[in-house]
Design a protein around this nucleic acid. Structure first.
Lengths: 109, 109
DNA sequence: CGTCTATTTGGCTACATTACCAAATAGTCA
DNA sequence: TGACTATTTGGTAATGTAGCCAAATAGACG
């Protein structure tokens, strides 16, 4: 594979990698309903603040969220709302899987 | 975070992880233009056959592609064409990044 | 200024992923 | 059946990722 083409797929993969974690998907979903500070997200997620901060920094460096410091808090917001379209597709993949699973079970597999 | 909700995000993350690799994104893109056998993909990618086979098996177990053995060859096809919608969004993220990069440079950063 | 609070960064360990090689499997065809 | 081809699977070493704790940073406010 040509190295220019490869670099193109790697740039895309960086974005997908940023979304390839349950906590980060939760964050994106939550931010789709409005901006949230790190402390709010930390509370909802129930992990160490430093862990949540690192997840946010990955999303930020992928260009998916933006941060805005106001007073003591840093508010994050979804910069690329188009990623929300991924959720619908993911759900349809999961439904299809569930459907096929049932068919296999009913065949006695 | 509630464990049922967490499981939901983890199921989604599994699908995103399957797409979080440049080679697998290339495969999905290629399969969007029609089915291909492992040997054709291996040739285009230029990696070991076993490596390509493992990438395909990840995409398959995530429910994104389907395989069909015909004769000596196994043909893979894209089962979830909705993932192609991701590409447009990834490109817009990349364009936004490139745009912001230029602004920073022009400010002498 | 000093203290308090929110967030980020560095360090470390445990775990996951990738790629290659070698070997196993499965179908084809003489 | 036996040789051949396409693909998958197992093993292993190198690399990447996630989480926690501790320490650093930065703004707010007395």
């Amino acid at each position: 594979m040509d190295s220019a083409i490869k670099a193109r797929y790697e740039a895309r993969a960086k974005i997908m990698k940023a979304l390839a974690h349950s906590t980060r998907l939760f964050i994106v979903d939550e931010l789709s309903r409005g901006e949230r500070c790190v402390c709010e997200l930390t509370e909802m997620i129930g992990a160490d603040t430093s862990t949540v901060s690192k997840h946010l920094s990955q999303l930020k460096s992928a260009g998916i969220v933006a941060d805005d410091k106001r007073g003591l808090q840093v508010y994050y917001s979804l910069k690329m709302p188009c990623v929300m379209g991924f959720f619908g597709c993911m759900e349809s993949v999961l439904h299809t899987q569930a459907h096929q699973q049932m068919k296999l079970v009913s065949l006695g597999e």
